[in-house]
Write a protein that binds this DNA or RNA. Structure first.
Lengths: 123, 123
DNA sequence: CTGTATCCTCCGTGATACTG
DNA sequence: CAGTATCACGGAGGATACAG
């Protein structure tokens, strides 16, 4: 349990920490980013993002717990599942769009137009 | 080196990945968030954030490499160092503010007003 | 197709002590 | 004060196979 009475939680960054607890990590914003586009099926996400099924499953569960996506099982053969953004996650849409645009701007800021030559953007 | 020709980098989320490579992780946005307020000294940040010196040092170096903060050594005895946000990082200010506000809103969305009772916000 | 189980690796993080 | 060195650890993330 987070200790809300601890000194570091009294400052202006408590809310930021809360946010990062929910949408932080390597994948959540990437998932939400493309999830805002349309409905997706599990395997579509695996392929589109390039993520392992295990990790994706875990991430989706956590997003669903926080009411950022919905999971809908369809009556098909075989069973298919649709994941979709909620209105709550759509409240993040301007932020996500801004973060994407900033990524593009940063690439210009740091490297000029020299694509594919940025140590800071390496994996 | 990131493989920009790989399939998962052709989609709409490449820019988001780039952004997360720079300001992702556990600390960067928290640091930038309070860094936008004013100048800070090293130890001030350690205390304010509740982060170990080693980690803070590493984070600050990475932020400086990406031109998000400046590091200024002052001619004092003993030496002091001031860290300050750059204009480049100030371009993130609206986003950071939005993320903070979203953290507050999310707390309400998920838990109502029941403070200190959120499994999803635990450490 | 939609996941879960299992195993494993490595990086991020922390504590502490220490140097300049 | 501003860091760095060293040691240690847990957990996030990945690969693969498999189950329903």
């Amino acid at each position: 349990m987070k200790d809300f009475s601890s000194p570091e939680c009294q400052g202006a960054h408590r809310a930021m920490r809360d946010t990062l607890d929910v949408i932080g990590g390597k994948w959540k914003l990437v998932i939400l980013s493309i999830m805002l586009e349309r409905k997706w099926r599990f395997k579509e996400l695996v392929r589109e993002i390039g993520i392992s099924p295990r990790i994706l499953s875990k991430e989706l569960q956590e997003l669903e717990i926080n009411k950022l996506i919905t999971r809908t099982v369809c009556n098909t053969r075989p069973i298919t599942v649709e994941y979709e953004a909620t209105s709550h996650s759509r409240s993040l849409e301007p932020v996500i769009r801004a973060l994407r645009e900033w990524g593009v701007a940063h690439r210009q800021e740091i490297i000029g137009r020299k694509e594919n030559a940025v140590p800071q953007l390496s994996n």
